[in-house]
């Protein structure tokens, strides 16, 4: 047997050679094109008054829906894998305002989180909160691009929606992808009132908000409406009472809207939950990227090297010190 054969037959020597070759291989660029999941979201946040309701808790402190949304969103954006993109918009009345188109979340995190931090009800340019119409316009304007629309709202229509005039989502169904995030508690809570400079001044009372829709024609036939008058009182003369000055998460309604528009639904309960909802496989897009895989030969080299040293520890067959 030649000396080389003999050497290579020695598992320790062979192992060292293999480890060396693998380490040398790892010195060269080695890339594999892999697919990974990234996300592209346009988050549209309802900033109407009912979002000021303080029915979330952080620690012992009651926080408003909007504040909880801000915190949760920043956490969720931080959890998105690099290469994902997030755009932010706000919603009030029936129109969304896009602040910026999706920005890559790793390089742009500080900018995105600063913008989310500043979301405030005082940005609202109108006081109405026509959720269904707003959702329809949002999907129509923003949902046709590459991004999924994440519509964050408590579902509180103000003034109440006349059931006769519900927006029709059939034109958008299947063309848009996204999620409605329901915000708020399930029990009724008072809506705080703020003055122009942002100071809090009590809560809305029963007679300070419209308790029923007075738009268009009533859904009821005139003979069923108390005190009906076609011109002066198309919705009847009875004083409308109700709970519209209190707010709760209208979950059933939002689920219904999500169903109609072909969107998913998620109830905001924790920042982690929102993070999971925003990285749901249904919203993932595949992105092909070249990934550095030099760690593979390096790890193999390490494994072989460890095997060599463990082999050294074993008692050698045929070796004896008396020789």
């Amino acid at each position: 047997m030649s000396i080389w054969r003999q050497r290579v037959a020695d598992p320790v020597f062979a192992g060292l050679i293999v480890a060396l070759l693998l380490a040398v291989a790892a010195c060269f660029p080695l890339r594999l094109v892999l697919e990974r999941s990234v996300f592209s979201h346009i988050v549209v946040v309802d900033i109407t008054r009912s979002m000021n309701v303080e029915d979330y808790r952080r620690g012992a402190r009651a926080v408003s829906r909007l504040e909880f949304v801000r915190q949760s969103l920043i956490g969720a954006v931080a959890d998105l894998p690099c290469g994902s993109a997030v755009g932010v918009g706000v919603f009030t009345e029936r129109e969304p305002a896009l602040l910026f188109e999706p920005i890559e979340t790793c390089a742009g995190f500080s900018a995105i989180s600063a913008a989310i931090e500043q979301l405030d009800w005082r940005m609202a340019w109108a006081a109405d909160s026509l959720i269904a119409a707003g959702l329809h316009n949002t999907l129509d304007l923003l949902g046709r691009g590459d991004a999924d629309v994440i519509f964050v709202t408590d579902g509180h229509e103000a003034p109440p929606l006349n059931p006769r005039y519900r927006p029709d989502f059939s034109d958008l169904r299947g063309k848009v992808r996204g999620l409605i995030v329901g915000v708020g508690g399930l029990s009724l809570s008072p809506i705080p009132k703020y003055d122009e400079s942002g100071r809090r001044s009590g809560v809305y009372g029963e007679d300070e908000v419209p308790q029923r829709s007075s738009f268009g024609l009533s859904e009821l036939p005139p003979e069923q409406i108390e005190g009906y008058h076609a011109r002066n009182a198309p919705f009847g003369s009875e004083r409308a009472g109700g709970t519209e000055h209190l707010s709760q998460l209208k979950e059933g309604y939002l689920r219904q809207l999500a169903e109609a528009a072909g969107l998913g639904y998620h109830r905001l309960e924790s920042p982690e939950g929102l993070g999971r909802a925003l990285t749901a496989p249904a919203l993932a897009r595949r992105q092909r990227i070249a990934t550095d895989v030099r760690w593979i030969p390096a790890a193999l080299a390490l494994a072989v090297l460890m095997a060599v040293y463990l082999r050294v520890l074993l008692p050698r067959p045929g070796f004896s010190t008396s020789n």
């Binding site: 706000v90 305002a97 602040l99 910026f100 913008a115 500043q118 005082r122 940005m123 609202a124 340019w125």
Partner: peptide
């Protein structure tokens, strides 16, 4: 517009 919007720092 009617109200100011903070967009990006």
């Amino acid at each position: 517009s009617t109200s100011p919007l903070f967009v990006l720092p």
